[in-house]
Design a protein around this nucleic acid. Structure first.
Lengths: 262, 262
DNA sequence: GAGTGGTCTAGACCACGAG
DNA sequence: TCGTGGTCTAGACCACTCC
């Protein structure tokens, strides 16, 4: 049978925390204190195991904790590294402001190019049956045919967000919005030119972990949450004419709003 | 282990998924399709292991994936359950609107009591050295003494968010804002009564996984991201007089904004 | 007391990228 | 080719809750 005595890894001095949590905690402290800088490499799993006198699997449990917290990333087979983070500013209000007369897409491009990076986007337009959440916001029955204009925006070839706009079929039918090409003046202006100028919008936000599909499309690492941003645009008559669903990865965005006291 | 390798798991990926990912995928499908309803219990690890003919640890790897995606929770030692989610609507704009003359806290209470739940909050006021992020927004030097008014808001005894407001010491000194008691008309009104009415605010949002401390204070399960919401309030002269840091767990909030086209 | 998940071990083989 | 992390096994003991 087991000739092995109780492991004794614990030594239970003061801390009753499991070994893997203590390991995670020690490394976490080194990261938040700056002793381990962003981008820096951690010791190998084997080394950490030796250092703490535990099995490699125990170290892996600890590292998994830090990965799920978004503090480190694993770059197989090179090792574990302290995660770098940088945010791109995202201003939903920009699209409803006249400002420098630049439509939605331009603003996106503009901001990025200013930073010396190369923005690109892929556009795909299709007719789909309205899913429940979109149908409800467009005040249509679920399954009604609508137009979906899907975009993936990238910087330097890396996708940074998913932006899917939905329109009632009858109002955009035969318009340029149905064409999978960039609309330099923006879809909102195009919609206005069709007689459906938006007067009001409702922004909804909620946040969660990405689905595996989103993780794949956005090349997300573990421990990166996403925000779902849903915009519903209304005409002055109160008719919903657009519903846009954005998926924003947490490691690439920061949302900024400005508001006036009323 | 001579695992028979028949690929074709999923379309064009070409390669075989590891067993734990296939298990996770199968359960994930059952959840998203509704075959496994929210709150429903999963089979035990042992049963799943038997069903797939793998070791228990392999099943655990798969379940850990689903936990980190926020799809299931583990309730030791009862078993794993499909996670329920319900969102509380959060309207940042409400605080800057006259509406039914109800201040910030009232609004929080009001909304909750309407739903038949019991809101509570704990308040703690202290003098602290301004941390870098707050100092920058209040346009003060890091380390300057400021007033921190920290609140934890709870529903039915369960904490739902952390709300820490910071003020320059000189403008709230000797005022009721320094007292750790509820201010029925709201701190914003109190600030206005001191001659520092806010005219404009900037809202910033970013999202990440919680720190272990936040997880503990908010009783968060794994797989629950948080949003950091930072509000900086300015007087009509453009002076920042308040900086509030909110921590909102992803399983309990939804942010809603309404805006007018300009 | 029975049964759950939580933790841990000491091996093993594999895929992959850098040298 | 070598060393990394990724995956997997077959055990073991524990803490906890429910019955």
């Amino acid at each position: 049978m087991s000739t092995e005595v109780k492991s004794g890894v614990d030594t239970m001095r003061g801390s009753t925390l499991p070994a893997y949590q203590r390991i995670a905690s020690a490394i976490r402290t080194k990261i938040t204190s700056g002793e381990l800088a962003p981008g820096e490499q951690l010791p190998t799993e084997h080394e950490i195991a030796e250092q703490y006198g535990v099995a490699r699997q125990t170290v892996r449990n600890g590292l998994a904790l830090l990965v799920s917290e978004g503090l480190i990333v694993s770059q197989r087979p090179r090792g574990h590294f302290v995660r770098r983070r940088e945010h791109m500013i995202y201003r939903p209000q920009a699209e409803s402001r006249p400002q420098p007369a630049s439509p939605e897409m331009d603003r996106f491009c503009q901001q990025i190019t200013e930073e010396g990076r190369t923005p690109t986007q892929t556009i795909d337009v299709s007719l789909i049956a309205a899913p429940a959440d979109i149908a409800q916001r467009l005040e249509l029955d679920e399954g009604t045919l609508i137009v979906a204009r899907r975009r993936v925006r990238s910087i330097n070839g890396e996708p940074v967000n998913i932006n899917d706009s939905h329109f009632p079929l009858e109002i955009v039918k035969d318009s340029e919005i149905m064409s999978p090409a960039d609309i330099p003046r923006g879809t909102n202006q195009a919609l206005a030119d069709l007689g459906y100028a938006q007067d009001r919008a409702i922004d909804e936000y909620y946040w969660r972990m990405p689905t595996p599909e989103e993780s794949h499309r956005l090349s997300l690492g573990a421990g990166t949450p996403v925000v779902m941003h849903i915009v519903t645009g209304y005409t002055v008559d109160g008719r919903p004419v657009r519903c846009t669903r954005n998926v924003l990865p947490g490691d690439r965005h920061m949302i900024v709003y400005e508001r006036k006291w009323e």
